[in-house]
Amino acid sequence: MPKRNDKRDTAKAEYVKRRRSGEKINLKEFAATLGVTYGTVRNWKKIDQWEDAIERKRGGQPGNKNSRGKKNAKGNPGGGAPDGNTNAEKDGAYSTIHLDRLTEEERAWLDAIPTGASANNAYELKLLRIQQRHIMEKIAEYEKCNPEELFTATITDMRKPGPDAEGKTADSAVQKMAMVNKDSAFVRVTQLREALNKVSGRIISLTTQIRQQEEFEKRYALELARLDIAKMRATGEVDIDPEGDEEDEEEAPHDKDSGAVS
């Protein structure tokens, strides 16, 4: 086995040290300072996993001055947003859900949602049917509107810093420009029909899944019945429900003394 190059460990230590300090290293120039070839240094870096040895600290890297002069949020000595902070959320569509932070109302709503495959499909199908109905009602409403009538779609409010009600400079205090985008009833009907097609497609897919599940359950029950019949034919044993009610046998009325039947 060839002897390990003495410069190999030294090269790794030097590389990791300089990279941790935030320095960018050119491997060719680094190899030249070591007195070895570029290919040798590149192989050492890959085999000995130099990059994995660089411990990156959370937050700004060495030399970063972006947060100089700024203070942490109140009650948060570690920097960054405190755990559970939701200040940056807009509508909650991309929120991280923590079960231990749900309200009682949210917990009750969550517990009421079915978790089984069949029950969950049926639950989702009901919601889609309601959504389908709302879209169809909205389409009918817009179809009755005047074709020339316009509806506000979006409003872009452009503002600049200026004095507020108290005379102090505040961000977005003065409106610079307002842009209003409108669309016609025809455009809205077109958009709603596209949404209706998506909902209807999902309804068809769910209906197919439910039907297939029902057919599978019927076939499964039929197969169990066939197995029971085959078992009875093979063994002569009949399974009796141990919890079934037993009927009391009543003696036929007769004359105990004479033995004659009246």
Rank of each mutant, 00 (worst) to 15 (best):
M1G: 11
K3S: 06
K3R: 14
A11Y: 00
E14A: 09
V16E: 02
V16M: 02
V16W: 00
V16P: 00
K17M: 07
K17A: 12
R20K: 12
I25T: 00
N26P: 02
L27I: 11
A32W: 04
A32M: 06
T33Y: 01
Y38H: 11
G39H: 05
G39A: 13
K45H: 11
Q49Y: 03
W50L: 12
A53V: 01
P62E: 04
G63W: 02
G63M: 04
K65P: 06
S67M: 14
G69L: 04
N72W: 05
N72A: 07
N72L: 04
A73F: 14
G75I: 02
G78D: 13
G79N: 03
A81Q: 10
P82W: 09
D83M: 02
D83A: 09
G84C: 09
T86Y: 07
E89T: 11
D91C: 13
I97H: 12
L99K: 10
L102R: 14
T103V: 12
E105R: 13
E106Y: 10
L110I: 14
P114A: 02
P114M: 06
P114W: 10
T115R: 09
G116Q: 06
A119D: 09
N120D: 07
N121G: 05
A122E: 13
Q131K: 14
M136I: 04
K138I: 03
K138P: 00
A140C: 03
Y142S: 04
C145M: 15
C145K: 14
C145D: 11
N146M: 07
N146R: 12
K160W: 05
P161E: 08
G162S: 08
D164A: 11
A165D: 12
D183R: 10
D183I: 07
R193G: 06
E194T: 14
A195F: 05
A195N: 12
L196R: 05
V199H: 05
I204D: 15
T207N: 08
R219A: 08
L222K: 13
A225C: 08
R226H: 08
L227E: 15
D228C: 02
A230M: 11
A230F: 10
G236M: 05
E237C: 01
E237T: 06
I240W: 13
G244S: 10
D245Y: 01
E247G: 01
E249T: 11
E250C: 06
E251P: 01
A252Q: 09
P253C: 02
S258C: 08
G259P: 03
G259I: 14
V261H: 11
S262N: 09
